[in-house]
Amino acid sequence: MRELTYAQAIREAHAQLLAEDPRVFLIGQGVWNPWYAGTSLQDLDKEFGRDRIIDSPVSENATTGAAIGAAITGMRPIVFHPRMDFMLLAADPIINQAANWSYLFAGQVSVPVVIRAVINRRGEQGAQHSQALQALFAHVPGLKVVMPATPHDAKGLLIAAVRDGNPVLYIDDRWLYDLPGAVPDALYEVPIGSAALRRSGRDVTVVATSYMAAEAVKAVATLAQRGIDVELIDLRSIKPWDHNLVYSSVGKTGRLVIADAAWMSGGIAAEIAASVASEIFHALKAPIGRVCLPDVPAPTSALLEQAYYIGAEDIVSTVEKVLVSSSRS
């Protein structure tokens, strides 16, 4: 199969959705320019016209609210927030409005909007250009949250999100943009709520999200050389998340490490750990390990960034620690 990069896959999903469905349009900052979006939206305005590809003023609240109003009245908008941090200025439309309307009006109104947010990391951009806030939004009933880690899923999850009929946060990571991978030509969906089993193994289950799923692939290779057989799950969908696949895997391996490149307290890793501990506690042979960011804002200086960010080596050391603690017990 042909290969695309992660960013190209996102772009192809947009183009095919726009061609397929006249209700789809795109609004947000920087959609006419690669400055923020890289190649992920390249030349969509030339292909589909600037009526449907709307590069907006810096008005997150109004543009997101307008997309929600358009969704309620029959459109299928995609809103683009070039940094997830900027999206917080649209917290009212997303959390108070989009998430609530279906429930509030007993299903008589729905909000089929996709809100895309980009996570950036490193580059000395600091605390307000680097936040990974998936847990904040996953907390809210009525929202769905997806985080693709491969080009295949970047395309398939965007298509599923647009067709879902609910408000879906689609969170992509700039550090994955150049990652290549096989991507089918056709329009296809990756079902929201299903995780991907990337590798079968018997010693320990690693559940990873987004960028950490890519890092986990490297960690698994290192661990394999050391004789540790990892089962790797790419969570893909943060809310709803795939309880069945995680439980069946942990049921088999008895050990769990969760890698999520966001703050640890109250995060996705905490949610998965709590669910596993309360649902299948008897299956665990060792304490659950979490690989997350320390509970501090993203620093700016490259030296501090080095200390702050996590990667494959952190997954390796946490897996080894979990294995050691279980051999003691």
Binding site: A62, G65, A66, I68, G69, G74, P77
Partner: peptide, 10 residues
């Protein structure tokens, strides 16, 4: 208010 703007855009 922004939702009404969205309905008009729609």
């Amino acid at each position: 208010i922004p939702l009404a703007v969205g309905a008009a855009l729609s």
